[in-house]
């Protein structure tokens, strides 16, 4: 196996307490973003049983729209809301144009459709915004807040706060509203839900719209840190998918938990040996799955057992 550092060997270093605190802060921020993206995966999975490979592109589009609006002089809250609104529409449009016409097709066919959509969206993003990264202002001042030896940005707090608020919002939606109850019913058993008069098709569209909105929000909050670029969605989408699986797909609290865990793993992995950080994160994810084959909070048997 490669020693940390390839040809030139550098010993892996153990972090000090102060460093560990910083790793944790970074990991939690990163993890919150992953968790937010994972929530988008969860919603669509629950409504349709598929993994939406265009989720990462929802995030990229959200980031690019938000930064363009902010660049054009819109105040930040308005820029973020615009991005969310645009992505809600795009999510719904994707469902209407590509998913609904293929109703009845197998899960894997639908997944390939989302892969096609992701390629299409990435192409459009490059055409519209060009290949270079673009900047976005932070929501508030860029001056860090010092926590003893570590430091945290206001944007980090925004990210964590927004993720908590989003979870709360989704929980209220699911538990307290008619629509949320209908969505949950569809997630449990689509046919049965339809029999009791729930418009399942509309619930699928709603799930895509909500996922789009979450993607737009995730893109908007991460862009000030990561910059916006047409292909930023590939890696973020993958990490989001990983988080959703780690938490147990279909489980919203699990998605956020999976995200946080992945973020912290990646952070600690980088602290140990930065060249292998993704390998460390994916490796531990695999081990978790081997111990708990349906993720941390997953149901006993996952949906979409076979691909066919």
């Amino acid at each position: 196996m490669p020693a940390c550092g390839g040809r030139t060997l550098y010993a892996m270093t153990l972090p000090t307490g102060a460093q560990l605190l910083q790793y944790l802060i970074s990991g939690l921020t990163l993890g919150s973003v992953y968790g937010m993206i994972a929530l988008g995966f969860t919603l669509i999975h629950n409504a349709t049983g598929i993994v939406n490979f265009a989720q990462g592109e929802f995030v990229a589009f959200g980031a690019l729209i938000a930064l363009s609006c902010s660049e054009a002089g819109l105040p930040m809250p308005l820029a973020v809301l615009t991005a969310m609104a645009a992505m809600t529409l795009l999510g719904a449009a994707l469902e209407r144009a590509a998913i609904r016409p293929a109703r009845g097709a197998s899960v894997i066919t639908l997944i390939i459709i989302t892969i096609g959509a992701s390629i299409l969206l990435r192409g459009i993003a490059m055409w519209q915004w060009g290949p270079d990264a673009l900047p976005m202002r932070h929501f508030s001042s860029e001056d860090p807040i010092h926590l003893g030896p570590a430091s945290i940005l206001r944007q980090h707090l925004w990210i964590m706060g927004i993720v908590v608020a989003t979870m709360l919002g989704l929980w209220l939606l699911a538990e307290r509203t008619q629509v949320g109850k209908a969505m949950r019913a569809c997630a449990v058993d689509r046919e049965a839900a339809q029999l009791v008069g729930i418009p399942a098709a509309r619930m699928v569209m709603l799930s895509f719209a909500l996922s789009g909105m979450l993607g737009g929000l995730a893109g908007s909050i991460v862009a000030p840190l990561s910059m916006g670029q047409y292909n930023m969605g590939i890696m973020l989408g993958l990490k989001g998918f990983c988080a959703a699986i780690l938490g147990g797909i279909g489980n919203a609290p699990g998605a956020v938990l999976g995200g946080l865990l992945l973020g912290i793993l990646e952070s600690l992995g980088a602290g140990l040996c930065s060249g292998m950080k993704d390998a460390v994160a994916f490796g531990i994810m695999l081990m978790v799955l081997l111990v708990r084959p349906t993720g941390l909070l997953g149901r006993r048997a996952g949906r979409g057992e076979a691909v066919g």
Binding site: G5, T8, Y10, T13, P15, T16, Q19, Q22, Y23, I25, S26, T29, L30, V33, V222, L225, S226, N231, M232, I234, M235, L236, S267, A270, G271, S274, G275, K277, D278
Partner: peptide
Amino acid sequence: KVVTLEEYGPKDTTMEIQLTKIKG
């Protein structure tokens, strides 16, 4: 003297960890 050789992925959103290490 090269005290450390750190890496990051081109699509990473933060390099705080690597820089925290370098700071040390």
